[in-house]
């Protein structure tokens, strides 16, 4: 079988090491653009939260707090599995790499399952802004605004998770084809960076949406 690293080295690069560094820098720059994308939404959320703190606390009290907390732990575990997958790839253990990729994908699916169950419960509680929203409090308009942010930001995050699942699936496929070795596994590393980044975003989403109103229940 041909050496995977010889197949993977593109002609514009001087060495495999330079190619890896270039890819890693490119991935980090992409992740920074993602920070800006979510950062704009976080900024907008902060402005609205400060203008209408009571309404936003009330909206936060309507969250399924424990589902959010469990989901945070679930996603952290999936990130750990991803880190273990990258570790296995570095050691050239392709069997273990495939195992941890499958585990990461499955735990990611558990996260999405819990998330969509929450969405269903909000729909059931008539907390779907613009479609069915029922709230009789005087601050109802801004409670609805809270839910607009909630669905937009967690929805964008869930969309990233779904893309991540696809990327991990592709990594698993390539692992099974034998494309990776101790010397060449950059795609697994970069997929890992993306997955950990999506985890980081959720950590902040949990903090801003679930925590402020949790004691009011």
């Amino acid at each position: 079988m041909a050496d995977p690293i010889a197949l993977a080295l593109r002609e514009q690069f001087h060495s495999a090491e330079q190619q890896r560094e270039t890819s890693t820098v490119g991935m980090w720059i992409f992740l920074i653009t993602e920070v800006m994308l979510f950062g704009g939404l976080f900024t907008a959320f902060s402005v609205y939260r400060m203008s209408h703190p009571a309404a936003f606390d009330q909206g936060s009290a309507d969250m399924e707090f424990w589902m959010g907390a469990v989901n945070t732990a679930v996603l952290i575990c999936s990130s750990f599995c991803m880190a273990m997958a990258v570790h296995s790839a570095e050691k050239g253990k392709n069997g273990r790499l495939a195992f941890f990729l499958i585990l990461t994908i499955l735990i990611g699916l558990v996260f999405l399952g819990i998330k969509f169950t929450e969405y269903y419960l909000h729909y059931h509680d008539q907390k779907l802004p613009g479609i069915v929203f029922h709230d009789t409090s005087p601050d109802a308009a801004y409670v609805q605004m809270f839910f607009v942010f909630y669905f937009l930001m967690t929805g964008l995050h869930a969309f990233h998770m779904i893309i991540g699942e696809g990327i991990l699936g592709a990594m698993l496929f390539r692992t099974l084809l034998g494309s990776f070795s101790e010397r060449y596994h950059t795609p697994v590393e970069l997929a890992g960076l993306y997955w950990h980044f999506v985890d980081t975003v959720w950590v902040f989403l949990f903090a801003i949406f679930y925590i402020p109103g949790a004691h009011m229940k």
Partner: peptide
Amino acid sequence: AAVKASLIACFFM
């Protein structure tokens, strides 16, 4: 959350 994000970035990433 910021502490957790730094842990993820420093070690996992």
